[in-house]
Computed example of a mutant assay.
Amino acid sequence: MSVVRPGELGPVEIKTWREMQRSSAHLANPFLSPEFTIAMGEVSAGARVAVITESDGPVGFFPFERHGGRVGAALGGWVSLCQGIVHRSGAEFDADALLRACGLSVWEFGCLVEGQRWFRPFETLTQQAVVLEFADGYPAFLDELRGRSPKFVKSTLYKERKLGRDVGEVTSEFAVSDPEAFRLLREWKSAQYRRMGRPDRFARPWVVELVERLHAVDTPEFAGPLSMLYVDGRPVAGHFGLRTDTAMIGWFPAYDPEYARYSPGLIQHLRMVEAAAEIGVRSLDLGISNGSEYKDALCSRTVPVSEGIVRRRSAAAAAHWLRTEPVRRARRLVLDTPALYGVADRVMKRYGRLRGGRAG
């Protein structure tokens, strides 16, 4: 096994990586693609890839990020929505031996892809991510959605028609290259984070650089499409995500609050699914529901994603446990207790409103 910087991966290794993704549908997630890993390598000095080999060549690729000393985490874990080893079908790994070979005593993950049985003993929480399936095309998807969520479809399509009557023609574009549109989407999203009392991802320069690099990629195997919804030529909602040739993942959706009564984000999602289906994409992963009504309404199926920590027996791992476990247990208690989660959510939103008021 060798550990390299993402930019040191050669053409043969990248080709093998893509073949592994194509051979296992659950590994086709864009966050597991070499393009995302290479882009992370350009914005993070700690980005690494373990190339796991046997006599006949690579059997797995393990992207990770070194956070100092012997502590590591999933690559881009603060923004990545899918993590784990991309591997040959049937391959087996030993978590302790893998970390030792990477020079790590600890590896944290937050959105582990399903089927990574070698990490299962270290999982601390498993949740369900929402997936939209449209392999049979958009009309079939919409018919299925009408049968499962008739009120949602009726309401969304009515609001789209009303938006057109009240304001102007409703149009959409799946892959927008305009940097000003991308800047506007990020402004909407940052404002949403502040309203919700959540950390603003785009306040970190490395995140802005990462998404701009990914937005510039547009190949059949991988792209970072910016989808926008317009009314009378004015942008009112958008989404920046990632796609492979068959799968897409929801990442940064946002809309102009001035048009909130029309639910432009929902309209934009349906338009985006229609356009994605036309180019051969078969599914859209919206991430963990967390009680989101629109995600639950759109959901075709769910897939498990897990978080946890692999710790080897070492002084570094023990120190990490002492430093992080109390916070982790408190967070788990809040997530597992609806009353506490509701209070925490309300407090964060109130904080967001207060902070927004001071900013204004």
Score class of each variant (00 low, 15 high):
254 A>Y: 07
216 A>E: 15
72 G>Q: 03
212 E>Q: 13
328 R>V: 01
95 A>Y: 07
173 E>M: 01
294 Y>M: 08
4 V>A: 10
346 R>A: 15
224 G>H: 04
317 A>D: 10
153 V>S: 03
181 A>S: 04
283 S>Y: 05
355 R>Q: 15
163 L>D: 05
334 V>G: 06
254 A>E: 06
123 E>D: 10
298 L>K: 04
298 L>S: 07
235 P>Y: 07
184 L>T: 15
64 F>T: 09
325 E>F: 06
289 S>D: 14
235 P>G: 11
154 K>I: 01
271 R>D: 15
70 R>Y: 08
239 H>T: 12
325 E>M: 11
200 D>L: 00
130 V>T: 14
190 S>T: 15
86 V>T: 13
356 G>T: 02
38 I>F: 08
354 L>V: 01
347 V>K: 03
155 S>T: 15
178 D>P: 04
19 E>Q: 14
241 G>A: 05
67 H>G: 12
32 L>H: 08
48 R>V: 09
184 L>A: 05
68 G>W: 01
91 A>S: 14
123 E>I: 14
168 G>R: 05
16 T>K: 09
286 L>I: 08
199 P>V: 07
64 F>M: 11
149 S>M: 02
162 K>G: 08
49 V>S: 12
106 V>I: 08
273 V>M: 06
315 A>F: 05
333 L>E: 10
334 V>A: 05
239 H>Q: 15
26 H>A: 14
310 V>N: 07
294 Y>P: 08
97 A>S: 14
243 R>P: 09
64 F>I: 10
197 G>Q: 01
3 V>T: 15
133 E>Q: 12
146 R>L: 02
320 H>V: 02
329 R>V: 14
120 R>T: 12
17 W>Q: 06
281 V>N: 03
75 L>D: 04
331 R>T: 14
49 V>F: 11
92 E>L: 11
302 T>F: 02
210 L>K: 08
289 S>L: 02
107 W>Q: 02
334 V>C: 05
60 G>L: 00
320 H>M: 01
295 K>S: 12
149 S>F: 08
26 H>L: 13
303 V>R: 13
258 E>H: 06
303 V>S: 10
167 V>D: 06
65 E>C: 04
98 L>C: 07
116 Q>T: 08
205 P>N: 06
126 T>P: 03
284 L>C: 11
332 R>N: 03
164 G>P: 04
331 R>S: 15
344 A>L: 03
269 H>P: 00
84 G>H: 10
16 T>R: 15
306 S>T: 06
267 I>E: 12
201 R>K: 12
11 P>I: 06
291 G>D: 11
322 L>K: 07
84 G>I: 08
255 Y>I: 02
340 L>P: 02
74 A>T: 03
294 Y>N: 11
143 D>E: 15
230 Y>S: 12
139 P>D: 13
322 L>N: 04
283 S>M: 11
92 E>W: 01
180 E>R: 11
276 A>D: 03
194 R>M: 10
86 V>F: 03
66 R>W: 05
208 V>G: 06
27 L>P: 05
